[in-house]
Amino acid sequence: MTVRIHVGAHKTASTELQYAIRSVRNELAGQGLGFLGPSALRSQRLPLSRAIRGDQNLAAEPLRAKLRYWLSSHEDHLISEENILGTTSRGEMFGGDDVLYPGAEDRLARTLELLGKPEVELFLAIRDPATFVTSAYGQQLRSGALVDVSTYVRGVKVRSLDWTGLIERLLGCEGVSRVVCWRLEDHTQVRGRVLARLLGPERAALVPPATLRHRGVSEKAYRYFMKTALEDMETPVQTLLRDAQKRHPRLEGEPSMRLLHHRTYRSSLVNYDAQAGRIAGMERVEFLRPQNPPVPPV
């Protein structure tokens, strides 16, 4: 039996992978692989997300029984849920000393306990911290949280947010055998290899090509949204943001909003490259990089 858990992170094309895999979940089940994604794990029938947040009104035993029955029903298993790490809210995203997802290891440990503490492989995509934070902030706006970006990142050294430390903490959880990691910036080039590692090569061939999900908020849309949000105190935030995105959509190839200081984006990228190098050299980490095309003979 294999158990693989894709934990995101948020804003790293997780939705694209989940959508594509879910579209062939019946075919995958026919080949012995069970799949649970966010639509199942955030539902009333299988409320994993609530359970690992410590919801005191939720009885754990029925959920535990359902998850273990699911494990017994398939040979191989894939869970994909970025909220195992936390959410994009400020308190769950940032901790002291530039920690990312400060509660991640506790939430993962609760997940593994509910599953019966199997041995698992974790799958995690990382992203340049500055663009990651900007995109996570956009997710908060879409959820209806009206907060300015300076408040969202107050006290956080964005350029120093630490993916390396997050992976070390996840590897420290009992039952985690390995972390398979890749960069969002390489998603297009490594998507096929990610799917092959998640599903197996034959099953990966069933998954349809990538489709773009969550285009993000354009710079013009954000500026329009903030202006209207200050003038209109009655319309829900989500409605104002949707209207702004409709008026100023982010077109394919267009950069998303850049709300931090330009020096933050520059220094973040430098630190991120260094972090990726360190992560690639860590024990029990498999780092997926784009494969160089073969050099033609001279």
Rank of each mutant, 00 (worst) to 15 (best):
R64P: 01
R278N: 03
L170S: 03
L112R: 04
R159G: 04
F123W: 08
P255M: 12
T164A: 14
S160V: 07
T111P: 06
G103L: 06
L251Y: 05
L17I: 12
H77L: 06
R197M: 14
F132T: 02
H10T: 14
D97F: 10
P38C: 06
L41A: 06
A29T: 08
R289S: 08
G54H: 04
M1H: 14
M282C: 14
G200Q: 11
V237A: 10
E113G: 12
A60S: 06
H10C: 09
F35G: 00
E105L: 06
I84H: 01
R250F: 05
Q140H: 07
D148Q: 12
K227T: 04
L288I: 15
V158S: 00
E202V: 15
E121Q: 09
R284Y: 08
V217Q: 02
H214A: 11
P294S: 13
V179M: 05
H74P: 00
P209I: 13
T239M: 10
Q291G: 10
A229R: 04
L115Q: 03
Q140K: 08
V153N: 02
P297T: 11
T188Q: 15
T131H: 12
D106T: 13
R191F: 07
S43Q: 08
G86A: 06
E75K: 14
G165R: 12
I52C: 00
A65Y: 09
L48I: 07
E283H: 14
I21Y: 04
E82Q: 07
T228N: 05
L63E: 00
S39M: 13
V147N: 04
I52R: 00
R258Q: 14
L184F: 15
H6I: 07
A244V: 06
P201K: 15
P290F: 10
K66M: 07
Q56V: 12
G216K: 00
R22I: 07
F35V: 14
D128G: 04
M226C: 05
G253C: 12
R50G: 00
K246E: 10
A109N: 10
D148I: 10
